[in-house]
Amino acid sequence: MHLPDPCGPLSEGVVRALRAAPDGPHPVPQARAMGDVIDPLTDRDFQLALWILYELHYRGFDGVPDDAEWDPLLIVSRAGLERTMEHAVRALVGERFESDSLGHLGDDPAQRVVTALIRMTVAEGPSQVSTFLQRRAGRKEFCEYLAERAVYHLRESDPQSFVLPRIGGPAKVALAELQYDEYGGGRPDRLHQALFADALESLEMPTDLASYLPGASGATLASVNVMSLFALNRRLRGAAMGHLAAFEATSSLPCDRILQGARRLGLPEAVQDYYDEHVEADAVHEQLAIRNICGSLVSEEPELADDVLFGAMACLAVDGLAGDTLLRRWSQRRSGTAAEDHRAARAAG
């Protein structure tokens, strides 16, 4: 992948550092004081800078030596961005969810966490994005949705793989079981990332992640970065697994709606296949993630209970932001077009 085009001083600093001295060290110029970042979770420049630094741990960039992954100066820059990111996620979670001592759910911490995860994700209800795609979206809007989600789905499940060596016992076994399914269950053609690429290809859309970075909103990048934040910091392993549980538990029903939307629009088989697969798969993953992963993890490490719940709330809150951004874009465009039609009709009449 080539280095993405920066979109502000922070991402500019990172890109310039990676380009200028390929062999490092890589001091990242502080071109923008972090204090200028008002809302990190929707700030595209901030999120892109962090995304680029995280990407060094996944697949890297053409022309950037692999050593850059552990360049101490880049790690320092990443840690600075991560602190701001984590702080913002905690603040958003605090705003959206009442703090709840969970004491009323009994005294077995694992059972408490399982019950809380189920409650929280049921209360969430169907996402408005999925309802829109099911009933109203046109083909163009549907494709925009796929394009926006591509930065995640083309790398689906990769962040969580970093957690495998960080946990043990039944939780580790269950995570491996879930990941095996995400990674195709032994069949390369069923790799979920590949199913998504097939869906894109069937619509004659590009299948490389780099093509989708320029269009991805800050909030969408944040929804991906939050997974890397949790998965790459061992301290936050509980949050990573809570995030996974909330993600899986709020996937089957929306995927079914999106599938219905794809059928309504007569989109190619490959698009339907991706969502069809996820209705069934995520109904399994929901149970695995909530009970076998998070439940077992908390039995083994009860002090992680709050982190697991924090991760789940973070998933719902941050993904919610990304969904809102998309919905706003669509409704602004639709009302814009409606207003134009109205003006045109008036002018004509």
């Binding site: 538990a249 109904a283 399994v284």
Partner: peptide, 13 residues
């Protein structure tokens, strides 16, 4: 809607 498989409908209120 996909019996015998679960499709998470048990979640919908």
């Amino acid at each position: 809607a996909r019996l015998p498989w679960c499709d998470a409908s048990h979640r919908a209120k």
